[in-house]
Amino acid sequence: MAKREVDIVIISDVHLGTYGCHAKELLKYLKSIRPKMLILNGDIIDIWQFSKNYWPESHMKVVRRILKFVTEGIPVYYLTGNHDEMLRKFADFNLGTFQLLNKIVLNIDGKKAWIFHGDVFDVTMQHSKWLAKLGAIGYDTLILINSFTNWCLTALGRPKMSFSQKVKAKFKDAVKFINQFEQTAADLAVEKAYSYVICGHIHHAEIREMQSTEQTGSVLYLNSGDWVESLSALEYNDGAWKIFTYQAADFNNDTDDDDTHDTEDLDAKLDVKSLLERFRQEPH
């Protein structure tokens, strides 16, 4: 299958190493594109919840595919998030076309884009990290139960449902948090005279022109969503942004035949599981 040429691809909140991660779907997406630039905007590997007992081959294949982009000379920026915050001590590390950063400002066709994960705006992260980590475990458990429920619903010929979306819709505080998050990002971006502000973190894909609170200007706010529920990415091509949303029907003919051929010795060079376990054990 011919690969789609895309100028810039941004993904976030993949949460590799957790049960909720849709690694197989993400792998199919990554194999379907040839980006000129790939930006991984935080929470790609979930070091918070990482366990040596759960690192499926499908998760390793996603890492291989990303590294394949690097070997092909495609710029890959890994921006740290809260679930992979242990990597922040290694910020500014680079290897070939791969760079590890906390945030980045890019010039995209003459317009400045401010790109970062967004957890800096999360009050829970700043003041009650233990509560945020507990919430992450609860969220992953909810997704796991939701997956089993959807399997049963599909077997019965009934439509799938999203527990977390129902929870967000029921509690006004969740909607209020998302709105405040987006407005805060927009206000700061307008203040800094950026054209785009691009985040992840809240698992809510969005492209929206937003006015600052003081009505002093506007900025295009973008969020790449996640690969736990929405299975979405941001794509920039021919001067325009769009949200890509994974649809299984579009990838029926996908195969894994090239995985072994492309990176047959990668596991020997990069022991990801041992590396992540070391990050978890190091004092913060």
Rank of each mutant, 00 (worst) to 15 (best):
W241T: 08
P56Y: 05
A155T: 10
V120S: 10
R34A: 06
K160T: 03
A189Y: 10
K52W: 09
D13Y: 05
Q49T: 09
F93A: 09
D46L: 09
C21G: 03
L222S: 12
L153W: 08
L144G: 08
E57R: 13
E206M: 10
D238I: 01
K89V: 14
R208A: 09
K68V: 02
I44E: 02
H261V: 14
S12F: 01
D92N: 13
E209T: 13
C21D: 11
H59I: 00
K28A: 11
I243D: 03
I45R: 10
L79I: 11
S12D: 03
D262T: 07
V76C: 01
E182P: 00
A155H: 07
E229G: 02
N107G: 00
D173K: 14
G118P: 11
L142G: 01
E209N: 11
Y29W: 12
I10C: 00
K3I: 08
N102L: 02
L100K: 06
L30D: 00
S51D: 15
D46F: 07
F251S: 07
M37A: 01
A91H: 09
I202F: 03
G157I: 06
T184W: 11
N237S: 14
K103V: 01
R34S: 09
L38C: 05
M1I: 09
A136S: 15
K166W: 14
K24E: 15
I137F: 08
R158M: 14
D187H: 12
E209Y: 11
Q99I: 01
K170Q: 12
K24G: 04
Q247W: 01
A132G: 15
L220S: 01
D250S: 12
N223W: 00
W48H: 09
R208L: 12
N150D: 06
M86C: 04
N223C: 05
V63Q: 06
Y19Q: 13
E57V: 12
R64Q: 10
I108F: 02
M37N: 03
K269A: 14
L30V: 06
D250G: 07
L142Q: 08
A240N: 15
D140L: 05
K68I: 02
F244T: 01
S212C: 14
W130N: 13
E182H: 12
K166D: 09
Q49H: 14
N179M: 09
D257L: 11
V167H: 04
I115E: 00
V6I: 15
F181G: 01
M161V: 10
K166E: 11
K176Q: 15
K61W: 09
T154E: 13
D119L: 02
A249G: 10
I202L: 06
F93K: 09
L270C: 13
T149M: 05
S51K: 15
N107P: 06
K273Y: 02
I198E: 02
N150T: 03
S232T: 15
L131M: 15
S232W: 02
D140Q: 15
N94G: 08
V63G: 00
Y78A: 00
Q99N: 11
T149N: 05
R208P: 01
D122K: 07
Y29V: 03
S195P: 05
R280N: 14
W114E: 02
A248C: 05
E85Y: 11
K28E: 14
V14K: 05
I108T: 03
S224V: 00
T18C: 13
C152S: 08
E277W: 04
